[in-house]
Every structure is written in structure tokens, then in C-alpha cells.
């Protein structure tokens, strides 16, 4: 069974919601990022999203854009991203890992090679923001053959005509983009998010994770009240960015600080009913 399906089944049995954390692989260094990644489950992350660095992340805001530029400086980002997943998997056998990013680095790596290497490293899902349903079969099909879920995105612009297109063939969970915009921007109201999740659930049995604009433990709690999972990315990356010295290197104790913030987010999600 795919770890994502197992994870949501477990959460359902425990009657609780999931915290999904996003960090950019290799930001700002591979060592720091690996240390952070290893600590996320203990801090309360239920699902890990690991960003695959890309030079031109045109659906992301400044926080993730800068994180990508920092990560790329280390070189060979895709190889290092998969190495990090492998290390993580050696210690954490159950926590799902979802790779998130853009299609071009995967094309450059080779789609078949990528699916094989990602599966053997222990990747459970993919979120590729520039592969909408009309274009995703070239990755979705080989990924599915490797046992990897291809996560579809629904958005505030998914009208009644569009939403079934997005949900048809969706697997793993549905990622609801709570605001029309880029990552790290505005926040949606709980009422709007709740209504959108209901619309999705009327058409799909999959769990719904909500991301974009969730910055505080309180907001994470609000979202977890109306959805199956809350995704936090830019706010975690902001905590990393503020702890970098003038050379872009992490200050002492930074990973503990970031993990403390993650545990506060987890408390928020746990408080949801």
C-alpha cells in the first residue's frame, strides 16, 4: 500500500488531521536540510513535501523562489533531492514523502529514470505545478506504474466545468490551492476554504489537503477544522531565511528553531476538531 493511503487511513482511525510541511531540498545546504528533514516527524509533520529546486518557479512567491536559488547553488539538485529522500526513508519507514516542483528538471533527468529512482528512494507522491491534467499523462502514467501517486490540484478558479476534469484520475489526495495566487501570499477565509473542500468532497472520496497562505498555528488549526490536512511551506522557509548569516549559511541552532515552529503548527492542527 502506498504510504499516503496508509497515512490517511491511520489518521482517519485516530480521528485527527494531518500537518503537511514543505521545505526546499538543499536549502540552504544539503547537510542543514537533511538534518531538518530528519527532525520533521518528531516535530509533528505527518506528511513531508520536499521541493525540487528549479531556477524559474513561476507559481511560487519570493520565499520559495529565493530558497530555490539558494538550493541550486549547491549543484546537481535532483540527484541530491533523491539522496535526501533515501536517507530519510532509512530512518522513517512510514511517513509519506511527496516531491513538489516543476516539470523541466524531471524532463532533464529523464522521466523513466526519475520514476524508477524516485520509487526506489521511497517517494510516494508527486505534485508538479506546471503539469495540468491536459499535459500530465507523460509523467502521471509512468509514475503510477512505479507506485507513485500523481497529486492533482484544485483551485478557486476550478468552476463546475473544470473541477471534474481535475478530479477525474486524481490519486493520493487532492491539493486545494486556497487562494488564486502564488505561494506565501494572501490567506483565504475559513468559510471560503470550507465551502471549497465540501465541493471537492461531493465529487471525490480522496482526502483533501489545503495549502497557500497558511502561516500561523492558528490558521493551520482553522484549516484542519474544515479539511483533512493543512500544508505549510513559505512560513517555514521564512523561518529558515531569517536564520541565515551574511554568507547565507545557517546560524547555530537554526534547525531547532525551525522545528519548534513546526511543532507549534502541529499543535494547532492537533487542536482542530
Amino acid at each position: 500500500m502506498n504510504r499516503i493511503d496508509a497515512c490517511f487511513a491511520r489518521l482517519k482511525a485516530d480521528k485527527r488531521k494531518a500537518l503537511v510541511t514543505y521545505i526546499q531540498a538543499g536549502d540552504p545546504t544539503q547537510d542543514f536540510c537533511t538534518e531538518l528533514l530528519m527532525g520533521l516527524p518528531t516535530a509533528g509533520a505527518d506528511i513531508i513535501e520536499l521541493g525540487m529546486p528549479f531556477s524559474d518557479p513561476s507559481a511560487d512567491g519570493p520565499a520559495i523562489d529565493k530558497a530555490a536559488q539558494r538550493a541550486i547553488k549547491g549543484g546537481a539538485p535532483m540527484v541530491r533531492t533523491l539522496e535526501m529522500v533515501q536517507k530519510f526513508r532509512a530512518q522513517h519507514s512510514e511517513i509519506p514523502v511527496v516531491l513538489m516542483g516543476y516539470f523541466n528538471p524531471i524532463m532533464a533527468y529523464g522521466v523513466d529514470r526519475f520514476c524508477a529512482d524516485a520509487a526506489s528512494a521511497g517517494v510516494d507522491g508527486l505534485i508538479i505545478v506546471d503539469l495540468p491534467p491536459e499535459e500530465d499523462s507523460e509523467l502521471k502514467i509512468p509514475a503510477a506504474k512505479s507506485g507513485i501517486h500523481f497529486i492533482r490540484l484544485a483551485t478557486p478558479t476550478s468552476d463546475d466545468k473544470r473541477l471534474p476534469v481535475v478530479l477525474n484520475g486524481a490519486s493520493g489526495f487532492v491539493y486545494y490551492v486556497a487562494v488564486a495566487g502564488i505561494t506565501g501570499g494572501k490567506s483565504a477565509t475559513t468559510a471560503d476554504t470550507g465551502a471549497a473542500v465540501k465541493r471537492i468532497k461531493a465529487l471525490s472520496d480522496l482526502p483533501v489537503a489545503v495549502g497557500f497562505g497558511i502561516k500561523t498555528p492558528g490558521q493551520a488549526e482553522d484549516v484542519a477544522c474544515v479539511a483533512d490536512a493543512a500544508v505549510v511551506g513559505s512560513a517555514i522557509i521564512d523561518h529558515i531565511a531569517t536564520g541565515l548569516d551574511e554568507n547565507g549559511m545557517p546560524e547555530a541552532g537554526l534547525s531547532e528553531k525551525v522545528l519548534k515552529f513546526v511543532s507549534q503548527l502541529a499543535e494547532g492542527v492537533r487542536a482542530a476538531d
Partner: peptide
């Protein structure tokens, strides 16, 4: 083709 974020597709 159309390789854009889902928000832009409609």
C-alpha cells in the same frame, strides 16, 4: 501545449 498552474487553466 499548456504547461501552466491549474489556477490559470480556466
Amino acid at each position: 501545449g499548456r504547461y501552466v498552474a491549474e489556477t490559470l487553466m480556466p
